[in-house]
Nucleic acid binder design. Structure first.
Lengths: 153, 153
DNA sequence: ATACGGCTTCCCATTATGGTAAGGTCAAGG
DNA sequence: CCTTGACCTTACCATAATGGGAAGCCGTAT
């Protein structure tokens, strides 16, 4: 199997297969006399493993650990589970962050009438606190939209 | 105000302020005789605008549009609202993707007993379909864990 | 033999951010 | 007047994972 076939069979692009080899995520592939990379079904299976792991959001670094456990017949499933739950935790943290952004944005968008007029509570909020104080819901107390600010990175 | 003070006042690091200037997100800052950048309160306000927009997940490219609308007194709030709702849509799409990953992972993690034994349905799934078929819940029909595979990018 | 498609390597670009190094500047204190 | 420390300047490098392209070799089918 050459790299193109391995790519099709595994769902990992040829470009990425070479990349994974270059960073030593996968072992150096064998070569034909003319220099073409050759892949065995076993290696394709490993690529598919990587592909699936990527689909679950694991970083290449984590996949390295997953692969090590995969190969290790004496592994403890607890170690695998920990990687999985850590991954879940990380994803959930990001989801919470994004959900907070969504909530704030929806709040602002709801307050914006979205018509031809220039007054816009979204810009008013972004443009430093609530200085313009214009809100399309014609009669609303001057109470500022409570925007949540958070900083993750 | 020099760049350090502007950074502190706006929440944007000095490094990023220079970067934003280099990519022309913000206008070229004034300079003192000795070459130090100088910032007026107006410019700090713009930096704060950028900072808040970043906090809401807007890309620099989108912020460029937001800033243009911010400056444009004849803007239509509909345009601003569209940027906001597009942003919401993008965030929600990502959240859905990550939620799908989380669901799959939790499913797998729940099936893994996480003890000293090496058998692990997580690895079994990642390592190509369900070939080992080992599941810690001692008695479970051979029915494979229904893993959702998806590809977004 | 010739052409087309696949392979090889090498380099570049992306996004937004941080780090570091070498050197100029400013203000305070001796 | 000189030193010191904090701050500024530019320039370069690095990150994570992926795609794109060029230049050149290889293999197979006509």
């Amino acid at each position: 199997m050459n790299i193109g076939e391995a790519a099709k069979a595994s769902g990992v692009s040829a470009k990425m297969i070479r990349y994974y080899e270059s960073i030593r995520l996968i072992p150096t592939a064998g070569r034909t006399g003319s220099g073409y990379r050759v892949y065995s079904p076993t290696e394709v299976q490993m690529l598919r493993f990587i592909r699936r792991s990527r689909d679950l959001g694991f970083s290449v670094e984590k996949i390295e650990e997953l692969l090590a456990l995969w190969r290790d017949r004496t592994r403890q499933s607890a170690d695998v589970k920990r990687l999985a739950t850590d991954q879940i935790d990380g994803l959930e943290r990001k989801v919470r962050e994004m959900q907070a952004m969504i909530d704030t944005l929806r709040h602002l968008a709801d307050a914006c009438c979205g018509d031809h007029r220039p007054d816009c509570p979204i810009l008013a909020d972004l443009g430093h606190g609530v200085e313009h104080g214009s809100d399309c819901t014609t009669q609303q107390s001057g109470k500022a939209v409570p925007v949540q600010h958070f900083h993750s990175r």
